[in-house]
């Protein structure tokens, strides 16, 4: 079980949350080549170690949040609102 610190509600059980994918993706500009869009839509890294992710507090305040999770240990290292940067920049 993971305890995820929601920036609004405080630490809550993982079962209240829904995983929302990679939080480090940058949306390409509308006129970007099709390769850039293909990469944005379909291709994902599989990092070993700290990874920034989006989670939705679906059974709580229904807000999205950023979570930095260590993919090896499942340690939750930090969390932040979607419009705020996680401490220490990108992993």
């Amino acid at each position: 079980m993971l305890l995820i610190p929601c920036p609004w509600c405080g630490s809550r059980n993982q079962v209240e949350f829904t995983y929302g994918g990679d939080a480090t993706l940058k949306r390409p500009p509308p006129d970007a080549p099709v390769e850039a869009w293909y990469e944005f839509v379909y291709l994902r890294d599989n990092p070993c170690g700290p990874h920034d992710e989006l989670w939705l507090h679906s059974a709580g305040c229904r807000r999205w949040l950023k979570v930095r999770r260590d993919t090896r240990t499942h340690d939750i290292l930090a969390s932040a609102r979607p419009d705020q940067a996680l401490p220490g920049g990108e992993p």
Partner: peptide, 10 residues
């Protein structure tokens, strides 16, 4: 107050 789950029910 808190929002959470009871079983699988929000």
């Amino acid at each position: 107050c808190r929002q959470s789950l009871y079983g699988r029910v929000p």
